[in-house]
Every structure is written in C-alpha cells, then in structure tokens.
Write a protein that binds this DNA or RNA. Structure first.
Length: 334
DNA sequence: AACCCCATCAACCGCAACTTG
DNA sequence: TCAAGTTGCGGTTGATGGGGT
C-alpha cells in the first residue's frame, strides 16, 4: 500500500529516548493506559511516531520488566522454547513475562546462538548432532501441534467453566475468548522496572501509583494490573496478541496457572534487584500461586530431557500434559 | 594515547495480521 | 466485502562502550 511509514514524516524524532520523553510517555500512559498509540504523539507532544512510543513502552518502560543478566533458568527456557517454537520471540517472551521479546531476541542472537554453536561443536565429537534433532523437530511439530491444540481446547474449556462457576472475579489472565479486547480505561499502577526511570519517576510514582486497583471488569484486566506484564493491553505479550497460535494460547494458561513468581524464586541470584517502586508494583495483589502449585512440574518439564535439543515432540507432549495435569490436579486454583 | 575490533542492546523498518467504518 | 487505518512481530541496523593491540 502506498502509505509512507509514520516514521518518515518530517519532524519525527529518532534515536535514543531522553528521560524527559520517557516521563512524558509514562505520564500519559499513567493517565490513559497503553493503547491508541496513534494518539500518543499528538496528545503528549512527543516528536515521536506512534510505533516508537509503543516500542519504548513495551520494551523499556512497561512495568514488570526485568533487565540485566539472564539466569540459567531463563536461558534454558529460551533454548528450549526456541527449539520448540522457532524464532517466535513474542511467543517465547510470553513464557518469560518479565522479559521482552526484543530482549530475548537480542540475547538469543548475541549469546545463545554462539553458546549452542559451541555446544554443537563440542558434542559433535561425541556423536551428538543437534541439526539432526532440529530437522526431526520439523516433522514432529505437526504431530505435537495437533495434540497441543486438543489439550489447549480442553484446558480452556476447563478454565472457562472454572472461571464462570467458582470465581466470577477471578484474578486469572486467561480468557475464554480467542481475542481479549484491550481496554484503555482501566486504572493502572505504574512503576517502571528500569532503575533509571524508577528513580526518575520516584516522586511521580509516590503521588500516583499505589492506589489500590479496583478492577472494573472481570478476570482479564484485574490480572493485568496485578501481573504487571502479561495482560497490559496493547503490549507485545501474547495474552493480547491476535495470534491464533497454540503455543501462545497455552502460554496464557501457563502464565495464569503458574504465575511467574515461581521463576523469580529461582532467580534469586539476580544481580538486578527490583526498584522499590517496581517491587511495590509486582507485589501488588499478585496471587500467591507458588504456595499451592509445585514448581517441580515445570522444572521437570524443562530439565528432565537431558539438556537442550532434546526430543522436542516429547517436550511438547509434556508441555501439553502439564497444562492438563495442572488443571486436573489443581482445580482449586480457580 | 590512538586506533581497531567486537559485543551488546535500544531502536528502526517493513511486512503481515487485525480492526474498523 | 473492501479499503484504510492500526497494531504486533521479527529481522536488521547503528550507537555505544569495552577490550586488545
């Protein structure tokens, strides 16, 4: 279509964002919520294109983002998920809600690719050939996707039932619809996860954020505000992604079932403590699922396969089974 | 000290999917 | 149904900083 990219317009600023611009953007989103990006530059006076604003928000300013070193656990998850899903970074990121797709993509390209290459070189001597495994992955993918789809369907049904019967105001981010509609009217509490912005906005956040969120609408958005990452309307995480994508749908289930504090618990070595504001945000009304659900299920799935590049179809099977299992074994979660 | 090379990551770009009128 | 507008995604680029020579 002949339409020129918005960023080609004259007077549109490019390049790194300044703290002032960040403040403008955060302030605006604080008031209006993310979404309607087209209007953001006009309403904020930012000389940025809408795309740039959205990107800045989703990749940097959005609450709940963890920055800094990836833990072993995250690394393994990424490797595993990449083998499973390919370069679908948004889908992968949905399993690691504290990381952005951009972050994961960068990490993959800069660290993990090399690491795996090394690994492959090393293991080829021992008769281990990742390429072979990866090619078999292609053929098995069709099979496991079918199975996955069935499992997801069942999981969703169970969730829908559980949600409608037991807890109309449930704080789970899963949805019974295929396309959750982003809302922009919901009250948000924002606390940037990035240290600089957290500091920058310290006074701002004290003034504005710790108002208890009173969810206007049901499960989706209440979880959104408490989770802080996954269900922010208009963000890149897959809970709102318009994909008809198995993995993504399943990830919703995963996210809602496990919460991702559990990963945090394994990230205790993280050298990047959350800012006070961020932790304030993250701790806010987050359902304490860990207490009820054993992490070992997920960890088992991750680590029981004898390292990266294991049998992916089996992994997917377990992956799907896990969702089922969780539903079967933990109905009281809902 | 100056230069080069490389790694990292924020940001951009183009395309596709989705939404809306 | 279709075209225009909007949003999301993945690939790529470019600025920056650190390390080596």
């Amino acid at each position: 279509m002949g339409r020129p990219p918005c960023c080609d317009k004259v007077g549109v600023k490019k390049g790194p964002w300044t703290p002032e611009e960040d403040i403008l953007l955060v302030t605006y989103i604080q008031e209006h919520g993310p979404g309607n990006w087209r209007a953001v530059p006009t309403n904020t006076g930012l000389l940025r294109c809408s795309k740039s604003c959205r990107l800045r928000w989703t990749n940097y300013l959005r609450p709940g983002i963890k920055r800094g070193n990836f833990t072993d656990h995250e690394e393994k998850m990424i490797i595993h998920l990449q083998a499973l899903l390919g370069n679908r970074w948004a889908a992968i990121a949905s399993y690691l809600p504290q990381r952005t797709d951009n972050d994961i993509k960068n990490y993959w390209n800069t660290h993990l690719k090399k690491k795996l290459k090394k690994l492959q070189l090393g293991s080829e001597c021992e008769g281990y050939d990742r390429d072979r495994i990866l090619s078999s992955e292609a053929t098995s993918r069709g099979q496991w996707e079918k199975r996955l789809q069935t499992d997801i369907h069942m999981a969703k049904q169970a969730l829908c039932e559980a949600l409608s019967i037991e807890k109309p105001e449930a704080t789970i981010s899963i949805t019974c619809e295929t396309k959750p509609k982003p809302t922009t009217t919901q009250p948000y509490t924002y606390a940037s996860s990035t240290e600089n912005i957290a500091q920058l906005l310290h006074g701002f956040m004290r003034r504005n954020s710790p108002k208890p969120t009173t969810p206007k609408h049901n499960s989706l958005s209440s979880a959104a505000s408490s989770e802080g990452t996954s269900t922010t309307p208009g963000t890149t995480t897959s809970t709102t992604a318009p994909h008809n994508d198995n993995a993504i749908d399943l990830s919703e289930a995963f996210e809602s079932l496990f919460g991702f504090e559990s990963f945090e618990s394994s990230n205790s070595d993280s050298s990047q403590p959350l800012s006070p504001d961020a932790s304030l945000f993250q701790g806010e009304s987050k359902p304490d699922i860990n207490a009820q659900l054993p992490l070992s299920l997920l960890e088992k799935w991750l680590f029981d396969e004898g390292g990266c590049g294991g049998d992916v179809s089996a992994a997917a099977q377990e992956h799907a089974d896990l969702a089922d299992m969780t539903l079967d074994e933990n109905p009281d979660l809902f």
